[in-house]
Amino acid sequence: MMLSKDRIGGVLLLLFCLIYAWLSQDIRLLPFQERAAFHARTMPEILSILGIGLALWTIILPGKSERPELGGADWLKAGLFLVLMSAYGFTVRPLGFILSTSLFLMIGYALLGERKLVPLVLASVPLVVAFWVLMTQGLDVFIEPWPGFLRE
């Protein structure tokens, strides 16, 4: 069996789905939910089963025979995105959702090559505000929008 890009992706997907399935069993159920047909674990279980099936299909069935080429990837940009995502995780609580997420998107777009400030702001801020409104008003999920010093 030759290792191709597809098979490596399938192995990574299989690993992710197996971990996801295992962690989904940690979701606590209320006593009346244990015998219900649909509960908090149902969708994670279905998604993990579908993902495992697709991953196995990708691994087992013959695909392209090309070898993975890692030399052409922009590893610096990938590393910068990992740093950016980590920084976002650390700043979302102190800076608030709207400011932190807007900065995250603007810096991400800049890393991808956009250099003009107006498109960066127009592609980030309205999207973040619309998502915040959808989550807080439509789905009734509280997300702190502003930094701590602006809250009171």
Rank of each mutant, 00 (worst) to 15 (best):
Val118Ser: 12
Leu30Thr: 09
Ser48Cys: 06
Leu95Met: 12
Trp146Asp: 00
Gly138Gln: 03
Leu15Ile: 15
Thr101Cys: 09
Pro126Leu: 11
Ser86Trp: 13
Phe149Gln: 00
Pro94Thr: 00
Thr58Glu: 01
Leu23Arg: 14
Gly108Tyr: 09
Phe81Trp: 09
Ala40Asp: 12
Asp74Met: 08
Leu23Tyr: 13
Phe97Pro: 01
Ile8Glu: 06
Gly89Ile: 04
Leu80Pro: 02
His39Ser: 13
Arg151Cys: 02
Phe16Thr: 04
Leu120Gln: 01
Tyr88Cys: 07
Ala130His: 04
Trp57Ile: 11
Ala78Met: 13
Phe16Tyr: 13
Gly10Ile: 03
Ala21His: 09
Arg41Pro: 04
Leu99Cys: 08
Ile46Asn: 01
Leu95Val: 04
Ile8Phe: 12
Asp74His: 09
Phe131Met: 14
Leu30Val: 03
Lys5His: 11
Trp132Ile: 00
Ala37Lys: 10
Asp140Val: 11
Arg28Gln: 13
Leu139Pro: 00
Leu70Asn: 05
Trp22Ala: 13
Glu114Ala: 11
Val125Tyr: 02
Phe32Asn: 12
Ile59Thr: 00
Phe81Thr: 01
Leu47Lys: 00
Leu82Arg: 04
Val83Gly: 08
Leu99Arg: 06
Leu134Thr: 09
Thr58Cys: 12
Phe104Ser: 06
Phe16Ser: 05
Gly72Gln: 11
Ile143Asn: 03
Leu99Met: 12
Gly148Asn: 13
Ile27Val: 12
Ala36Leu: 11
Ile59Pro: 02
Phe32Ala: 13
Gly71Arg: 08
Leu105Thr: 02
Leu47Ala: 08
Ile8Tyr: 10
Ala110Asp: 03
Trp22Ile: 08
Ala78Ser: 09
Leu122Asp: 02
Tyr88Asn: 03
Arg151Thr: 05
Ala73Tyr: 15
Ala78Asn: 01
Phe97Asp: 00
Phe131His: 10
Leu29Ile: 03
Glu144His: 13
Thr42Ile: 07
Met85Val: 12
Gly148Cys: 06
Glu152Thr: 13
Phe81Tyr: 14
Gly79Phe: 08
Thr136Cys: 12
Pro126Asp: 04
Phe142Arg: 11
Ile52Ala: 10
Ala78Glu: 03
Leu54Lys: 00
Asp6Trp: 09
Gly96Pro: 00
Ser100His: 00
Leu61Gly: 08
Leu111Pro: 02
Trp57Asp: 07
Ala36Phe: 10
Gly113Glu: 05
Leu70Ile: 08
Trp132Glu: 05
Pro62Glu: 12
Thr136Pro: 10
Ile59Ala: 05
Leu23Ile: 06
Met135Asp: 03
Glu66Lys: 14
Leu29Ser: 08
Gly96Lys: 03
Gly63Thr: 06
Leu23Lys: 15
Asp74Arg: 10
Ala73Ile: 15
Lys5Gln: 13
Ser65Met: 14
Gly53Ile: 10
Gly148Lys: 14
Ile8Gln: 08
Phe142Cys: 05
Leu18Phe: 13
Phe104Ile: 07
Cys17Glu: 01
Ile19Ser: 10
Ile46Asp: 04
Pro62Met: 05
Ala73Asp: 09
Leu3Cys: 07
Val92Met: 13
Ala123Lys: 15
Cys17Thr: 06
Gly72Leu: 11
Val83Asp: 05
Trp75Ser: 04
Leu103Trp: 07
Met85Arg: 00
Ala73Glu: 11
Ser48Trp: 06
Gly10Tyr: 07
Ile98Tyr: 08
Leu30Ile: 06
Ala87Thr: 05
Lys64Ile: 08
Arg115Lys: 15
Gly53Asn: 00
Glu34Cys: 12
Leu23Pro: 01
Glu152Met: 14
Trp146Ser: 05
Leu15Asn: 02
Tyr20Ala: 10
Met106Tyr: 07
